[in-house]
Design a protein around this nucleic acid. Structure first.
Lengths: 137, 137
DNA sequence: CCAAGCAATAGTAACGATTACGATTTATAT
DNA sequence: ATATAAATCGTAATCGTTACTATTGCTTGG
């Protein structure tokens, strides 16, 4: 997934091509880490001083539905990152300070011994939290 | 962990013995599932019609710090449950409708092959989500 | 190239969950 | 009983997110 592919996908789905969307995606493509809506607003405020939360959240949630962005929730805040190029299902080690991630390839669902049949399983979450080298100082 | 042990622990730490705290803990002891602050208020409103959110949240967070309650966050809401009697570290399969849980004994941290040394790891979360037999209907 | 049609956006209000505050009540030790 | 400090109530403030209305701007067909 890259910015152009994502914009093409949007177009194909009937969404319009706007500079804001391109720049929003470019931001995620450049940063490759989890960002909050607030951080997006800060990062883009030079070019788009009046960028509203409505626009930010609506686009983030659109992108997320199209699997252009991955979404999680850390400390009560929604966070988004550009979808990893890795094809296989994987999880993340996440820096709670800056949102930087590292891929963790093992998925715990593969060797869960517990009987899950008395629940209709709909999903799972495995995240390792920490502080990256840059943020630890 | 049971209600009396928990109340003794509170007392030992210098917290006061109140009926509200006892009843709050009794609720969690009876329910054995994840509850939101709102659900706590609803459950106790018969005996304590004016129970304020200040009281609820303050006590929940106190209990959580003392490991009397376990805390997680589901769909943007804080949820609390009575700490499991199981001594060993474990994770949960959780019903997203009612908060009912089932213990999952395997911990994915034990066989993570990924090198974690470039982060200072502070914690992890592994939760399986679903709908229980009762709620599926 | 222009204009119609509709999606996208700005500005702002509304919302739900959580936290905070001042006044009052209550548990506890003396 | 009384003093002291914690606990609570009632309510306001805060934070993140969502929703609304008027306006703007992308797209497409003539």
């Amino acid at each position: 997934m890259d910015v152009l592919t994502a914009m093409d996908l949007l177009k194909k789905k009937g969404f319009k091509y706007t500079d804001k969307r391109r720049d929003l995606l470019q931001l995620f493509s450049d940063e490759k880490r989890y960002l909050s809506a607030k951080e997006v607003q800060d990062a883009l405020k030079e070019n788009y001083p009046g960028l509203s939360f409505d626009t930010i959240y609506r686009n983030l949630s659109t992108f997320s539905e199209l699997d252009i962005l991955e979404e999680t929730e850390l400390e009560g805040e929604k966070k988004f990152r550009f979808t990893c190029p890795t094809k296989e299902h994987h999880h993340h080690l996440i820096c709670l300070k800056c949102g930087k991630t590292k891929e963790v390839n093992a998925c715990p669902m593969e060797n869960v011994a517990t009987d899950l049949s008395d629940f209709q399983v709909t999903g799972h979450k495995f995240e390792i939290y920490g502080v990256c080298q840059v943020c630890v100082n």
